[in-house]
Design a protein around this nucleic acid. Structure first.
Length: 803
DNA sequence: AGCACGCCGACT
DNA sequence: GTCGGCGTGCTC
């Protein structure tokens, strides 16, 4: 009998290995690696993934697996080995890697039910009554009734059984189809024989007879004939029509027209950049290209034409875009060029919609995937190119297990398929640019905007001076003047602000009291529309205080400015200006994002006010002014990448202005105008910024000169948290080479979240072959649960967020 | 993770 | 003397 090695759906240290099961003869030959199966595990049944099919096992007493969940593997050999790599490099459980690669719909759901055993009668009337008109009762219901003990006795006495069910979240959408059951040559006669009052029935049959295909959707047939479902029902009863269900895709872009676009002629620079990419595609040679092109230099057209080449030789393409910029604009460009060959994957889709897009990819019904981070796992089997747009974006790093980076994952996959990776950005991540300098990546440069448009003029305004001159508004005089000017000319403005909501925190002006979260070491954020103070880390809420809880003073001031507050202010200062506000709060509804952008595009608004999400991808000809209200909010967060992030963001936002005929202007308001990342963003000088920042990174022993690994320990007890971190730090000190720099133990930048105290240890290293092994030992040692179940140890290799 | 098995305190 | 508390260890 065959044996299947299975990774079970239990994310824990002790179960992070394969378990062997017998394959019952009836499934023999049908079970393959990469398929999901239901297996018995202890007393329950759970989902698992087959990793290997073999003829014998080391283990003596094997249980047979219950049944397969798939007819075809959901993970191919390449993805299975990619999961091995993910597990190894990010130190996650294998099951977590598998789950990250598949749509959420494939994650199993479990249900426990009590079932009355055939022919048995429960010992009490009460239980018998519960089973009156059903054979199963949910475990939860029994628990709620407080009858678990009684039921347990019944189970022992073999009158009731406890059944563990595995349910798939994946629900294929089915539609009702009907077809004519009349003999083809006599249909007329049959229809005529119907009673005279069966008018609707006749219409339905006539409609069906006219159809070229056997089955049509019931909905269509009803609409066309004006019949109701009752009509169909009686036709089915008479046996005149037959009914089936057909699987169908949910189409998130249904009824949407995409203007077909043709390849544009490339500029000389674009031409030069695309040649090596096309070569790599043709010669099937893996190479990673860093496509470094200023904003508006036409990177997208290079992507499109490279993909075209890939499709022409019968291969497939993955395009990653940051979640936030998965704007309709981007989707339009790809759907416009490649039509139905494109699947789109982003967080705005429902679980079912994502599942459908995934199945289209698996069935090879599409050739191109445009999606956010997790689209890197698209189950293509003949990849010809992987493109990562805005490659510097932090959203390409997953912040929970498996903590993978889409860039490294892309390179890993591309090596397997011998195909190129294109990393595109106007402001590459320092790591990427450094690799390009060293020749690890191949640098392709687009130094000019298309049609030689000039980059926008940038003015940096010192807000301290504004304040000194008595301007206490959030708009500097320069920005306000220009804003008025654009309104007069009918041109559009983009205003950028890094913070949503109203104000960031409130403080008592008399005693300086700031209301903080009782569970976390962080101040509460004021939310205007709910009129609550909220903690962004644990969700704690409390009402806004009318008086200071410390000194009873009523002088409470709102600090920090959010988009809501700016919107209010604009309403006061420029009441005739039409403002569209875009942030998480206004775009959370489905389709809201697109709607707001369309309003702006059609000129129905003068000012687009928003957060991060308006920083990239926008390309509207009438935008001639970009205002950054406070450039330094990001600069002061305790993260060695804060300068880089500030520079990138400012450059991206500035790039929204003057992309077409009209010349653009940018105003950057700041309290630290002398800071190099603001100065150099103003000059749009990436190269200079790169030089400067590299020096700082070198001195601080930070990436790209060193790699990082971060161990975070949290516990309800401060002493435990710090002492365990100390032990871990000491262990690492003794295990790693002299050249590794080990910092800690120190409290995390946010020392307490959700009542858990957090300590960390940071490792900076260049080459440390024993590191992964050491980190694994730490995880194994401290996650043996009975040690201390309140203890949490999290390890992030190459962390992005240091908090 | 979840579940059973097993060993100690407060109840019929 | 039993019910149920949660410490410990296993799941092919």
């Amino acid at each position: 009998m065959q044996v299947a090695s299975v990774i079970v759906d239990v994310a824990a240290m002790q179960t992070d290995r394969s378990f062997d099961y017998l394959i019952p003869d009836k499934w023999s030959g049908m079970i393959a690696p990469g398929m999901r199966v239901i297996v018995p595990f202890g007393p329950r049944s759970i989902q698992g993934f087959v990793t290997e099919v073999k003829s014998r096992s080391e283990v003596e007493k094997l249980k047979p697996l219950i049944e397969p969940m798939d007819l075809l593997p959901v993970l191919n050999a390449e993805l299975l080995s990619l999961a091995d790599w993910l597990t190894e490099t990010t130190l996650c459980f294998k099951i977590s890697a598998y789950q990250a690669m598949l749509p959420a719909a494939m994650k199993a759901k479990y249900e426990k039910v009590f079932r009355l055993i055939d022919g048995k009668t429960p010992s009490t009337k009460e239980i018998a009554e519960l089973f009156q008109n059903r054979t199963e009762i949910l475990w939860e219901e029994v628990a709620k009734l407080g009858l678990l003990t009684v039921f347990r006795q019944e189970v022992k006495a073999n009158r009731i059984e406890l059944v563990y069910k595995v349910k798939s979240k994946g629900n294929k959408k089915m539609i009702r189809m009907i077809g004519c059951a009349l003999p083809a040559n006599q249909s007329k006669e049959y229809i005529e024989q119907l009673p005279a009052n069966a008018l609707k029935q006749k219409l339905v049959l006539e409609y069906l007879v006219k159809q070229t295909s056997k089955f049509v959707s019931a909905k269509e047939a009803m609409e066309a004939s004006g019949a109701s479902s009752a009509t169909l029902k009686s036709l089915i009863e008479k046996g005149l029509i037959v009914e089936t269900k057909q699987e169908m895709y949910r189409d998130p872009y249904e009824n949407r027209e995409f203007q077909k676009t043709e390849p544009l002629p490339l500029t000389e620079l674009q031409e030069k950049a695309i040649i090596p990419i096309l070569q790599s595609i043709e010669q099937e040679q893996h190479e990673t290209f860093l496509l470094y092109g200023v904003t508006g230099s036409g990177k997208t057209e290079i992507y499109l034409q490279s993909i075209q080449k890939v499709l022409k030789i019968g291969k497939e393409a993955i395009v990653l875009v940051p979640e936030i910029s998965l704007t309709p604009q981007m989707v339009h460009r790809f759907k416009g060029r490649f039509g139905d060959d494109v699947a789109v994957l982003h967080s705005g889709l429902s679980i079912g919609e994502k599942y459908d897009e995934w199945r289209k990819i698996q069935r090879k019904e599409v050739k191109v995937v445009v999606g956010a981070r997790s689209a890197i796992f698209a189950p293509f089997e003949n990849l010809g190119i992987i493109i990562i747009d805005e490659e510097h974006e932090t959203s390409y790093k997953q912040e929970e297990n498996p903590r993978y980076h889409a860039r490294e994952t892309a390179i890993k996959r591309a090596q397997h398929y011998n195909c190129p990776v294109i990393l595109g950005s106007a402001t590459p991540a320092l790591e990427s640019f450094a690799r390009a300098q060293k020749g690890v990546y191949k640098l392709l440069t687009l130094s000019k905007r298309m049609n030689d448009q000039a980059l926008p003029d940038v003015e940096i305004v010192d807000m301290r001076e504004e304040l000194r001159d008595g301007n206490r508004s959030m708009f500097s005089r320069a920005l306000f003047e220009k804003l008025e000017d654009r309104l007069k000319k009918g041109e559009q403005t983009v205003l950028f602000l890094n913070r949503r909501g109203h104000s960031s925190f409130i403080m008592c002006r008399d005693c300086g009291y700031v209301s903080g979260c009782p569970h976390c070491d962080i101040s509460l954020t004021y939310h205007r529309y709910s009129h609550q103070m909220k903690c962004h880390y644990c969700g704690y809420e409390e009402p806004v205080p009318h008086a200071c809880p410390e000194c009873n003073s009523e002088h409470i001031r709102y600090f920090g400015t959010g988009t809501q507050k700016v919107e209010e202010e604009l309403g006061k200062l420029l009441p005739y200006a039409k403002v569209v506000r875009m942030d998480v709060d206004t775009t959370s509804k489905k389709g809201a994002h697109e709607k707001l952008l369309r309003q702006f595009e059609e000129g129905k608004a003068d000012i687009l006010l928003g957060t991060q999400m308006i920083a990239k991808g926008l390309d509207f000809p009438n935008i001639t002014l970009v205002g950054v209200l406070t450039a330094d909010t990001m600069l002061h967060i305790p993260d060695f990448r804060s300068s880089e992030k500030t520079f990138q963001l400012l450059t991206q936002v500035s790039g929204r202005a003057g992309r077409h005929e009209l010349q653009g202007e940018v105003v950057i308001q700041t309290y630290t105008p002398e800071h190099y990342s603001i100065q150099l963003a103003g000059e749009q000088d990436y190269d200079q910024f790169y030089q400067q920042e590299m020096m700082i990174r070198k001195m601080g022993h930070y990436p790209p000169f060193y790699f990082l690994a971060l161990v975070t320990v949290s516990h309800y007890d401060v002493i435990t948290a710090s002492s365990i971190t100390e032990k871990i730090t000491n262990y690492l000190r003794s295990h790693l080479s002299k050249s590794a720099i080990i910092l800690g133990p120190v409290a995390s930048p946010i020392p307490r979240i959700n009542d858990r105290y957090r300590y960390q240890c940071l490792i900076k290293y260049k080459r440390e072959p024993k590191l992964n092994e050491g980190l694994k030992t730490i995880l194994e040692h401290y996650t043996k649960q009975h040690k201390d179940k309140h203890l949490q140890v999290a390890i992030d290799v190459n962390p992005f967020i240091m908090m």
